[in-house]
Simulated assay, not measured.
Amino acid sequence: MRERRQIVRLWRQSEAAVLVTLIKVAGSSYRQAGARLLLDARGEYAGTISGGCLETELTRKAAWMVRDGAAVERYSTMFDDTAEIPFGLGCGGVVDLLVEPAGSPECLALMEAMEDSLRGTEATVVTWLPGEGKGLRRVVLGPDGSVVFASAALSEAKIDCAKGLLPEGDNEGRFVEELRAPQRLFVLGAGDDAKPLVSMAALLGWSVIVADGRAQLARAERFAEAERVVALGSDGAAGLGIRRRDAAVLMTHSYEQDREILASLLPMAPGYMGLLGARHRSSLLVSEAAAMIGWTVEECCALIHAPVGLDLGGDGPEAIALAVIAEVQACCQGKAGVSRRLTAESVARQIELGGASRYLQVQCAMEQ
């Protein structure tokens, strides 16, 4: 997603010349289908379509490749001096690249759709690849399935095929992709330890929203890389517009504020919900938040990652931020492995042992 931001920025700030899209991979490849590189008229580029082995070749020849319009070029990254496909570099695969002039209506429509996706408007892009005497044709569909753009050369039947209204009636090659909005991360807590978390998320191209009930901490100048910095009101997280695909990390270090925010956050059921703090503190928080909203502890634990973050080891805000970002990434990509999250049984055990109540007494005394 950060790469998409860089490509769109170069497109807006420079005279774009050629857009290269990785459309097919056979065997091993550093990048997967959908990776892009935008080359401008000065020879500068943004994005990558390999681990660096093809970029130099493309920046030298891309303008020549599109002299007659868009084309599909095949490269082998096998280490083989006798291969007919240029040129073996030892990466272990064959890649097909769509190379298109950046000034065409089709490319402009794609770039605008990419830019809109960064603002949260998702799209489906269907591209009929050039070949057999036909040029590149493209349809851009909005999130509701409406046609945002369609090449002039496309028939209504082709457009209906793109919309899924009719089965594909021929063997023409197509490349279909979903332009998803950036991952949104809500950092609920604006202490100093939230800064590396915000920085790492921004490095990945995520949209980061920082919120805290303490206005003296929730200031934009403290989090320059965040998309928004919000001072929370009495409704906690309820007014932030958190959705099911979002991630949220609760880390205010204030027991009372954490409890109120957690109670407002649970019914929203974001895709990832992490709670920073010791197990005994988190156990009491979950128990009390469950009672506040009339849920069982088991229902709450099913939604919460606590202790937050993967068990990577290390100490300090940066190491914790890395562990949290890694777990959010794994969870949101469907790659979550072994979890350390609380269960109803562990919550009950912590409370029974009395650790949570002792921690609360110390915490309350510190906050006073």
Score class of each variant (00 low, 15 high):
Glu177Trp: 04
Leu197Trp: 04
Ala150Pro: 00
Met1Glu: 10
Glu221Phe: 11
Arg42Gln: 15
Ser199Pro: 00
Val148Cys: 11
Gly309Glu: 07
Glu55Asp: 06
Asp246Thr: 05
Glu299Thr: 12
Ala289Asn: 10
Asp315Phe: 10
Gly191Gln: 05
Glu122Gly: 05
Ala247Cys: 11
Thr59Ala: 12
Met1Tyr: 04
Gly239Ile: 09
Leu204Arg: 05
Leu303Gln: 15
Gly173His: 10
Arg67His: 12
Gln13Met: 11
Met114Gln: 14
Glu115Ile: 00
Ala194Lys: 05
Leu360Met: 06
Ala123Glu: 08
Met366Leu: 14
Gly213Asn: 09
Leu10Gln: 14
Gln368Cys: 10
Ala326Ser: 14
Glu100Trp: 07
Leu188Trp: 10
Ala220Asn: 03
Arg174Phe: 08
Gln6Lys: 13
Thr82Ile: 08
Met78His: 15
Tyr75Arg: 13
Glu115Pro: 00
Glu178Asp: 09
Pro143Asn: 02
Asp212Ser: 11
Val208Glu: 10
Glu367Asp: 15
Arg2Ser: 15
Gly103Phe: 08
Gln368Phe: 03
Asp192His: 15
Arg138Asp: 05
Lys335Thr: 03
Leu19Thr: 07
Val139Trp: 00
Ala63Met: 10
Gly90Ser: 09
Ile23Arg: 02
Ala70Ile: 02
Ser199Ala: 15
Gln13Phe: 00
Ala220Met: 12
Glu345Met: 08
Pro101Ile: 13
Glu168Trp: 14
Leu89Lys: 07
Pro143Leu: 02
Thr252Cys: 01
Arg341Thr: 07
Ile209His: 11
Arg340Trp: 03
Gln13Thr: 13
Ala109Phe: 02
Thr48Gly: 01
Leu154Pro: 00
Ala202Glu: 03
Thr82Met: 09
Glu256Ile: 02
Glu352Cys: 09
Gly233Lys: 11
Gly213Ala: 13
Gln350Ser: 15
Ala46Phe: 05
Arg74Ser: 12
Val94Gly: 06
Glu168Lys: 14
Ser76Asn: 04
Gly93Pro: 13
Leu37Cys: 11
Glu115Ala: 15
Gly274Gln: 00
Ala194Asp: 09
Val210Arg: 01
Ser146Gly: 10
Ile49Ala: 09
Cys91Lys: 09
Val229Leu: 05
Ala319Pro: 01
Ala215Asp: 12
Ser207Cys: 09
Val187Met: 06
Leu22Ala: 07
Asp81Lys: 11
Glu100Asn: 05
Gln6Pro: 02
Arg138Tyr: 01
Thr21Val: 12
Arg36Val: 09
Ser234Arg: 14
Thr21Lys: 03
Cys332Trp: 04
Val347Lys: 11
Glu3Pro: 00
Gln216Arg: 14
Leu265Ala: 10
Ala263Gln: 09
Ala215Leu: 04
Ala16Met: 00
Val198Arg: 06
Cys161Gln: 15
Leu204Gln: 04
Glu168Tyr: 07
Arg281Asn: 01
Ala238Trp: 05
Ala102Cys: 02
Leu165Gln: 13
